[in-house]
């Protein structure tokens, strides 16, 4: 068994795929350094990430699969699910073997896996577009903390940039310890010195003074737009799963 260790980036994975073809590996698994499980018989090789190699793989794939299918591969990659690297490899090998778009071959296990996983990641992307709650800080930056199930920040960037073009904003993924910041001109990925103890409390100390009154107005609105005679908590929780409540203004307890 050949193990390929890549750097965890999408480009890195594409280069691993390149190497699989370059060295004609038959029995191969792709993983990051901290996922590796060294076995006695296996051989391990480090993949060197090179943009040109990655581009060649993308170009090769695009001969056969649609832009939508390409996006699905990327989304599946962002799921960070265990074993997705190998499933994606199987998908790619299936494409190059058949020389056609197999994205809709739902009875094939790799095609179905990619379709299902991309779907899950897309749903999380959509949830983040819905559940991000900005808090306005004293220096007029709209700031939001999130902890998405999947690594969806790269996917939501465009949506927020298009929407909030006239305000500075920052969305920070607390789980993955990076964020996107928009400074009225461009967006960039940033990392904050943000110790794990800091939370809502620390953020509250730096808020703009109209922030808390607006939060309270939103909570009031959320409560008074509810129809008590139609109460249906099961449906409520299905749409807004508990794990998201932490950062939802309207679900913070009242005094």
């Amino acid at each position: 068994m050949q193990t390929l260790i890549y750097d965890g980036s999408f480009e890195g994975w594409l280069c691993a795929v390149f190497d699989v073809y370059e060295y004609k590996y038959a029995n191969v698994t792709i993983c990051t350094d901290n996922q590796r499980q060294d076995s006695l018989w296996g051989e391990t090789r480090l993949v060197y990430t090179d943009k040109q190699k990655a581009d060649r793989v993308v170009k090769g794939l695009k001969q056969y699969i649609s832009a939508v299918a390409m996006q699905q591969l990327y989304k599946t990659f962002l799921s960070e699910q265990k074993g997705m690297e190998d499933m994606l490899l199987e998908y790619v090998q299936y494409v190059f073997r058949e020389k056609k778009d197999i994205a809709k071959d739902y009875s094939h296990h790799a095609a179905r896996y990619v379709d299902d996983t991309a779907h899950k990641v897309h749903r999380e992307k959509h949830r983040m577009e819905a559940f991000v709650r900005f808090q306005k800080t004293g220096d007029d930056i709209y700031f939001a903390l999130v902890e998405p199930d999947f690594n969806v920040l790269p996917l939501i960037l465009k949506h927020f940039r298009d929407r909030y073009a006239d305000q500075k904003w920052l969305i920070y993924d607390k789980k993955r310890k990076y964020g996107i910041y928009y400074d009225l001109h461009k967006t960039e990925f940033i990392q904050l010195d943000f110790d794990t103890q800091s939370s809502n409390k620390d953020i509250a100390a730096i808020l703009n003074e109209s922030e808390l009154p607006y939060q309270q107005l939103w909570k009031d609105y959320f409560n008074s737009t509810n129809i008590k005679a139609r109460k249906n908590m099961k449906l409520h929780i299905r749409h807004m799963p508990l794990r998201y409540w932490k950062y939802l203004v309207e679900k913070q307890p009242e005094i």
Binding site: D162, D166, L184, K231, M233, H236, H239
Partner: peptide, 30 residues
């Protein structure tokens, strides 16, 4: 679509930002 660095754009499929306890979507300030 957002024009001239204004505020907002429309998401074609719509977005439900919250759901009240009756399970109904909150998308607009109604």
């Amino acid at each position: 679509k957002n024009e001239n660095k204004g505020l907002g754009n429309s998401a074609n499929s719509g977005i439900c930002h919250a759901y009240t306890e009756d399970g109904r979507c909150v998308s607009l300030l109604k």
